[in-house]
Design a protein around this nucleic acid. Structure first.
Lengths: 140, 140
DNA sequence: CTGATAACTGGAATAATTCTTGATATCGGC
DNA sequence: GCCGATATCAAGAATTATTCCAGTTATCAG
C-alpha cells in the first residue's frame, strides 16, 4: 500500500498561486516533480526530469523557481556537506539521515513531545527560527 | 575569567605529530590559528591570518592541510547552508547556533545524558556515524 | 649522502550557483 | 481587447569555493 501522506497535493492539479507566489507553468512543473519523486533531487536532477516536457526550460530558471519556492515556504532546501543543494516538499520540521552505503536520504522527525530546549544547552536568550540536522551512517 | 577549556594545547607548543599526522610547519601554523581564534574561520580566513608569518604559503596548501586534519580527526569541518566550509578544533560532539543578526556562531552541546536515539525517530537499524545540527535565530 | 616518499606552491580547472541582458508573459485599468 | 507596468524566463557569462596538476622542496630510512 502506498501512503497518501506522500501526495498531499495531487500532482496534476497544482493551484495558480501558493502562499502568495504565482505558480507559473515552470514552477508548477518543478513543484510537481518534487511531489512525485521524493528523493531529494538537486536542481540539476529536477532540470533533467523536466527537459522532455518543457524543452526550452533553462537551468537558471530551475534555480530561480526553486529559490522562489523556498523563500515562500513552499519547499525546503537541504544541504549535505558541500554537495549540491537538494530540495523537498516536506515542510514538517525534520532532518535527514544519509545512508552512506546506498546514498539514499531518509527524512527523520523528532519523537513526539520533544522540544529543542529540552535536549540542547542553548545560549541564554536564544530564539530559534530554524533547525537543521543531518545524520550520516548506514542501515544494518 | 578566561576559560582554560578553550586552549587545550598551548598555541606555542604544537607537537610534531597528532593522531598519526605529521604536523609540518604549515599545519602547525594553521592549527595554531584555529586554537587561538575560535570563531569558525573559513579556509580563506585562515589563509589571510597566516600570510604575514608564512608569506609564501599557498591557499591550496591551507585547503589540503585543513582536509588532512579533518581526515585525521584533529579538527572539524562545519558547513552552513551553501557558505564556505568553516573549521573548528572543538572535537566534542556539538552543533552550532548561528546568530543571524551578529553572524556569530556559538557551539551548542546536548544536555548531559541526552542521546540522539532518545529524541529522534530513526529508521529501524540505523547506525549513526556522524551527527550535525545547526540552529539559526537570534539572541533576545 | 641518497633515493623514496610526502608535502608544498602557483596556476589552471571544475562544479554549483548567481548575475546580466534581452525577450516573454501576465495583470490591472481603460 | 489593448496598453503599459511588472514579473518571469532564457541563455550565456561571471563568480565563488574548492580541487587538480605539474614541478619543486622537505623529510625520512638506510
Amino acid at each position: 500500500m502506498v501512503s497518501k501522506a506522500f501526495q498531499p497535493v495531487p500532482a496534476s492539479e497544482i493551484p495558480d498561486e501558493i502562499s502568495g507566489l504565482r505558480m507559473t507553468r515552470q514552477r508548477q512543473h518543478i513543484y510537481r516533480i518534487l511531489l512525485q519523486h521524493r528523493d531529494h533531487p538537486t536542481a540539476n536532477d529536477v532540470f533533467m526530469r523536466i527537459k522532455d516536457t518543457l524543452p526550452n526550460l533553462s537551468l537558471a530558471t530551475v534555480y530561480t523557481c526553486l529559490d522562489a519556492m523556498v523563500k515562500h515556504g513552499i519547499i525546503r532546501q537541504v544541504n549535505f556537506d558541500r554537495g549540491p543543494s537538494r530540495f523537498c516538499p516536506n515542510l514538517a520540521e525534520h532532518g535527514h539521515f544519509h545512508d552512506v552505503t546506498t546514498g539514499i536520504i531518509h527524512d527523520v522527525k523528532f519523537k513526539s513531545g520533544i522540544h529543542l530546549e529540552d535536549v540542547l544547552d542553548l545560549p541564554p536568550g536564544a530564539i530559534i527560527k530554524n533547525v537543521e540536522f543531518t545524520l550520516r551512517g548506514q542501515l544494518s
